[in-house]
Computed example of a mutant assay.
Amino acid sequence: MKNVLVTGGAGYIGSHACVELLEAGYRVLVIDNLSNSKTDALERVGGITGKSLDFIRCDLLDRDKLRKAFDVFRPDTVMHFAGLKAVGESVEKPLLYYRNNVSGTVNLLDVMVDSGVRNLVFSSSCTVYGEPDTLPITEDSPLGAVNPYGQTKLTIEYMLRDVVASRPDWNVSVLRYFNPVGAHPSGEIGEDPLGIPNNLMPYITKVAVGELPELSVWGDDYDTPDGTCIRDYIHVVDLARGHIKALQKLATDPGLMVHNLGTGRGYSVKEVIAGFRRATGQDIPCRIAGRRAGDAPAVYADPSRAAAELSWTAEFDLDAMCADAWRWQQKNPEGY
């Protein structure tokens, strides 16, 4: 399996996966509609690796163009990152999310069937677990998304289960991410959100660089050691390397696999702020605000299945996550 088609490969996680794929010797075609990404990321992937990849601007809803991309490149594996991912926007525009994420994946699977491609690594999310009753979260924890974004990921997961059950020659890896942060250590590629960031780390870096005045901490009265929410933050390079391990495992014909990709260690909002200050020497002005609806007090993974079955464990600690995120922000204060 050497020809890998990467959907959404110009995005934050997809571009880091492309680095790891090229460095591991794979031939890569990226398809991306560039709705929330830029080709600059792919040019920098080439600079980091010293290798080239192919790119076709294509929306997964354009089935004819998608089929032509398969005909030209002839992939044997697909890594599927393409999708809208803002929780708040998904609540406001649920049909947009179902059309883009679910219908786009149906098109992708149809073209894979027609093209004889049977290997898929799917970018899922810990949002499929909803608000967990017990911690840490295992792959067998109850499923129950609480917003349209998470529901699209869960719907796709169910769809993939049905596909594998109906077609025993398919091999599918479902990777449930926790909270990706950081950037490539070179500082050349990283997270470049449109507008005001929704996630903690890019918000912190934009406060540190002076683009935003302060960080709002949403609640400090949770039942956690310091009162702030706890999440499992994982370095994006660790996450990308997990995809390589999953891809390699597909060669053993495992059928359907589901793995959490997280560190197994939760960090509170205050711990992340302290880690950023420690790693960078930058002050982060903060304001304690009220709780946000839907924020669970703590969410973190049990990644032991990935360790046992994929031989994958996260290697980067919080300080490295913070330092790499800051290096990216310093080198690219306005993004790409």
Rank of each mutant, 00 (worst) to 15 (best):
A208D: 00
D192S: 13
G219K: 04
H16G: 08
I234E: 09
G187Q: 04
K38W: 04
E309H: 02
S166Y: 00
A183Q: 02
N198M: 08
A86I: 14
Q151H: 04
G219F: 04
I31C: 11
D140F: 08
D110Y: 00
Y129L: 06
G227P: 11
R176F: 09
N36H: 07
K65A: 14
D169C: 10
A314R: 10
F73N: 08
S103R: 07
V181W: 00
M159H: 09
L247P: 07
F122M: 09
S52Y: 02
P168T: 12
K249F: 11
G219V: 05
V172F: 04
G210H: 11
E20M: 06
D317R: 06
K93H: 13
L256G: 11
T252L: 13
A306Q: 11
R118W: 00
H16T: 10
I273W: 03
N198F: 02
A10D: 06
K51P: 03
R265Y: 09
I156L: 01
A10S: 07
K2P: 00
R287C: 09
V6M: 05
V209M: 15
G116I: 01
P94A: 01
G187I: 05
E89R: 13
N171V: 04
D223M: 05
Y12H: 12
D114M: 00
M1G: 11
I156D: 03
H80Q: 09
G46Q: 15
F70R: 01
R118Q: 04
T280C: 04
F178R: 12
D302V: 12
R176N: 13
A246H: 10
L160N: 09
H259Y: 15
L256V: 13
G190Q: 06
E20W: 05
F178L: 11
R167G: 00
A279I: 09
P333E: 07
V237Q: 13
D140Q: 14
M79I: 15
L60W: 01
G83D: 05
F316M: 13
M79F: 15
I137S: 10
I13L: 14
L212A: 03
V117N: 03
D76V: 06
Y222V: 00
E188R: 08
A306C: 09
V272P: 02
M1L: 08
G25H: 12
D71L: 06
V102W: 00
D59F: 01
M257Y: 03
G150C: 02
V258A: 11
C322E: 02
Y129M: 11
R167H: 14
E188F: 02
D71R: 07
T39Y: 04
V164G: 10
T152K: 03
L95F: 03
I48H: 12
G219W: 07
Q330N: 05
D54Q: 15
V113T: 05
V72N: 01
G335S: 07
R27Y: 02
L212Y: 10
Y98R: 01
D162L: 12
M1F: 01
G9N: 10
L53N: 09
Q330A: 11
D221R: 10
